[in-house]
């Protein structure tokens, strides 16, 4: 039982890291543009497929493909904002919400058109897990966790040490006050899309390494990603990270008592509980 618990916690941390990376973008975008980006899951999918281009046809190693895919997705996110959301800046947040829902389908169908609907893997070689007593650890999981931690540290430095990073946090706190302060809000919005896109790509690649690439990859985790962002409190990137890990572990550990097919229900239950009892997130209100 204890072994199971430890094993599941390890899986949970890996999955939680993926949720966390996705949730940071959702949380910041929600804080700054005041809408839930339903296309975030499909941005994750896009990042995963961009990495496939680099490791597949271009035959580059993953450590090159990874940053390239992050940069590509960041650019795509910025381009999407220019082409679409910028035109809707004055519209009500609900119009943005509907638009992002449509965008999710556009991205997904584009991916399906380009890469087809079938499951794809980056590599076919099988890596044997390490054994620590009865606990098994997959080497890719270690790498993924390490890179997740590195990305979180880099994010922290960006948000606390750079002008634009501080402006981003300020704008997520209160977009109106940011304008009044003279912060160039359009620039901050672009940076937020870029950051959200890059982190979504990282999450998507990890997810694809852990499972398989397919056009529904990101959409399937949108619910726990939103749950993580809500759990952490909207507009609070650190809360989103904590929320992601918490949800990842909770989801895996829940399989001790719950049929694993109902794992997504855990995310839903968390969403409902948070919304009803702590609408400002678990980690304190304003």
């Amino acid at each position: 039982m204890l072994v199971d618990l430890v094993q599941l916690t390890i899986f949970g941390l890996v999955v939680g890291g993926i949720f966390a990376l996705g949730a940071v973008g959702v949380s910041l975008l929600f804080g700054i543009l005041r809408f839930a980006n339903f296309a975030h899951g499909d941005m994750m999918t896009l990042g995963a497929y961009l990495a496939l281009v680099f490791v597949g046809p271009l035959a580059l190693p993953m450590w090159v493909a990874f940053p390239a895919a992050l940069a590509g997705t960041a650019l795509a996110a910025v381009a999407i904002d220019r082409a679409l959301f910028k035109r809707l800046r004055r519209a009500s947040p609900v119009i943005l919400l509907i638009s992002s829902f449509g965008l999710a389908l556009i991205l997904r169908s584009l991916i399906q058109i380009i890469w087809g609907p079938e499951n794809i893997v980056y590599w076919t070689d099988i890596v044997l897990p390490w054994r620590l007593g009865e606990i098994r650890i997959r080497p890719p999981h270690v790498v993924m966790l390490a890179v997740t931690v590195a990305l979180v540290v880099a994010l922290h430095l960006f948000l606390t040490r750079t002008r634009i990073g501080k402006a981003m946090r300020a704008m997520a706190d209160d977009p109106d006050l940011a304008r009044i302060t003279g912060i160039p809000t359009e620039r901050v919005i672009l940076w937020t899309w870029a950051l959200g896109g890059a982190l979504a790509a990282a999450a998507g690649i990890f997810l694809a390494v852990d499972t398989r690439l397919n056009p529904l990859l990101g959409w399937n985790v949108l619910l726990p990603v939103f749950a993580a962002a809500l759990l952490g409190g909207i507009g609070k990137p650190y809360g989103a990270i904590a929320g992601g890990f918490l949800l990842g572990v909770a989801g895996e550990v829940s399989t001790l008592v719950l049929d694993p097919v109902y794992k997504p229900a855990v995310a839903f239950a968390v969403i409902v509980l948070v919304l009803v009892y702590r609408p400002t997130g678990l980690f304190g209100g304003r």
């Binding site: 809408f35 839930a36 609900v94 949108l222 997504p264 229900a265 839903f268 409902v272």
Partner: peptide
């Protein structure tokens, strides 16, 4: 509105499961 939207995807998902 946005929170309700998120909650309703969850409902749809659970019904499907």
């Amino acid at each position: 509105t946005d929170y309700l939207a998120i909650a309703t995807i969850g409902i749809g998902e659970i019904i499907r499961l």
